[in-house]
Amino acid sequence: HDTTVHINGLRIEVHGASEEILKWIEEAARRGVEAEEIKRWVEEALK
């Protein structure tokens, strides 16, 4: 999927993410993980 995830006011563009990654992002956000940190993880995961 190409999608934009909104976390604590930060937009994260996610290209080619699976449902699993999207669920993981939402879970991390709920746990209060910094949005910048999530963004870094997602970029690494999608390389």
Results as ranks from 00 to 15, higher is better:
residue 47 K to H: 10
residue 28 A to E: 03
residue 45 A to E: 05
residue 40 R to G: 04
residue 38 I to W: 01
residue 12 I to W: 10
residue 20 E to I: 10
residue 41 W to L: 08
residue 8 N to G: 14
residue 17 A to T: 05
residue 42 V to A: 03
residue 17 A to Y: 07
residue 7 I to A: 05
residue 22 L to P: 00
residue 32 G to T: 00
residue 4 T to S: 13
residue 9 G to W: 02
residue 28 A to K: 01
residue 39 K to C: 07
residue 30 R to N: 14
residue 39 K to F: 11
residue 28 A to H: 02
residue 26 E to R: 09
residue 47 K to Q: 11
residue 5 V to D: 04
residue 4 T to L: 10
residue 33 V to M: 12
residue 35 A to K: 05
residue 40 R to P: 00
residue 5 V to M: 11
residue 21 I to F: 06
residue 20 E to D: 12
residue 16 G to A: 07
residue 20 E to F: 12
residue 36 E to A: 12
residue 15 H to I: 13
residue 7 I to N: 03
residue 17 A to E: 02
residue 32 G to I: 01
residue 15 H to R: 07
residue 21 I to K: 00
residue 34 E to D: 14
residue 28 A to R: 00
residue 22 L to I: 11
residue 24 W to A: 04
residue 19 E to S: 12
residue 22 L to E: 01
residue 18 S to L: 07
residue 27 E to Q: 06
residue 9 G to H: 03
residue 6 H to K: 09
residue 24 W to D: 00
residue 31 R to C: 11
residue 29 A to M: 15
residue 40 R to I: 08
residue 14 V to D: 01
residue 1 H to P: 14
residue 5 V to W: 03
residue 35 A to E: 08
residue 44 E to V: 08
residue 17 A to N: 05
residue 35 A to Y: 13
residue 7 I to P: 03
residue 14 V to G: 04
residue 38 I to V: 04
residue 14 V to Y: 10
residue 37 E to W: 08
residue 2 D to W: 15
residue 36 E to W: 12
residue 18 S to Y: 08
residue 24 W to S: 01
residue 6 H to T: 15
residue 36 E to K: 08
residue 4 T to H: 15
residue 41 W to Q: 04
residue 46 L to S: 02
residue 26 E to N: 07
residue 38 I to H: 00
residue 6 H to R: 05
residue 18 S to D: 09
residue 14 V to S: 03
residue 34 E to S: 14
residue 22 L to D: 01
residue 43 E to V: 09
residue 8 N to K: 03
residue 20 E to A: 13
residue 24 W to I: 03
residue 13 E to M: 03
residue 8 N to A: 10
residue 34 E to N: 12
residue 7 I to R: 01
residue 20 E to K: 09
residue 37 E to K: 07
residue 35 A to M: 09
residue 43 E to A: 09
residue 42 V to R: 00
residue 6 H to A: 08
residue 7 I to D: 03
residue 15 H to N: 12
residue 45 A to G: 03
residue 6 H to W: 13
residue 12 I to T: 01
residue 23 K to A: 10
residue 3 T to S: 13
residue 15 H to E: 13
residue 47 K to T: 10
residue 40 R to Y: 05
residue 3 T to G: 15
residue 21 I to E: 01
residue 20 E to Y: 15
residue 31 R to S: 13
residue 5 V to C: 10
residue 1 H to E: 12
residue 35 A to L: 12
residue 9 G to M: 01
residue 30 R to W: 10
residue 7 I to S: 03
residue 8 N to S: 09
residue 44 E to G: 06
residue 37 E to C: 06
residue 43 E to L: 10
residue 11 R to L: 14
residue 36 E to M: 10
residue 16 G to V: 04
residue 24 W to K: 01
residue 33 V to P: 00
residue 40 R to S: 08
residue 10 L to N: 07
residue 39 K to W: 09
residue 7 I to V: 12
residue 35 A to T: 06
residue 2 D to G: 15
residue 13 E to Y: 06
residue 24 W to L: 06
residue 29 A to N: 09
residue 12 I to V: 07
residue 7 I to K: 02
residue 29 A to K: 12
residue 47 K to R: 12
residue 21 I to P: 00
residue 7 I to W: 04
residue 16 G to C: 07
residue 19 E to F: 11
residue 11 R to F: 12
residue 18 S to N: 11
residue 3 T to F: 14
residue 46 L to I: 11
residue 18 S to P: 09
residue 46 L to V: 07
residue 37 E to Y: 10
residue 37 E to R: 06
residue 14 V to M: 07
residue 25 I to Y: 02
residue 9 G to E: 06
residue 40 R to E: 06
residue 13 E to G: 02
residue 25 I to E: 00
residue 27 E to T: 04
residue 1 H to C: 06
residue 36 E to P: 04
residue 27 E to H: 04
residue 31 R to I: 11
residue 4 T to A: 15
residue 20 E to T: 09
residue 21 I to Y: 01
residue 27 E to Y: 03
residue 29 A to R: 12
residue 20 E to N: 09
residue 23 K to W: 09
residue 6 H to Y: 12
residue 1 H to Y: 14
residue 23 K to M: 11
residue 12 I to S: 02
residue 26 E to K: 08
residue 29 A to S: 11
residue 9 G to V: 04
residue 21 I to A: 01
residue 11 R to T: 15
residue 19 E to Y: 12
residue 19 E to Q: 13
residue 15 H to C: 08
residue 26 E to S: 07
residue 23 K to Q: 09
residue 29 A to I: 15
residue 34 E to F: 07
residue 45 A to P: 00
residue 8 N to M: 04
residue 13 E to Q: 05
residue 38 I to E: 00
residue 23 K to E: 10
residue 29 A to E: 14
residue 40 R to Q: 10
residue 33 V to H: 03
residue 21 I to L: 11
residue 10 L to S: 06
residue 1 H to V: 14
residue 19 E to I: 13
residue 3 T to H: 14
residue 32 G to Y: 02
residue 39 K to H: 06
residue 34 E to R: 11
residue 30 R to Q: 15
residue 16 G to R: 05
residue 28 A to S: 04
residue 2 D to I: 15
residue 43 E to D: 10
residue 10 L to T: 12
residue 16 G to P: 04
residue 30 R to H: 11
residue 23 K to N: 06
residue 44 E to F: 08
residue 6 H to S: 14
residue 47 K to Y: 09
residue 24 W to V: 02
residue 24 W to F: 05
residue 27 E to R: 03
residue 44 E to L: 11
residue 13 E to D: 15
residue 29 A to G: 07
residue 47 K to E: 07
residue 44 E to P: 00
residue 13 E to P: 10
residue 40 R to K: 14
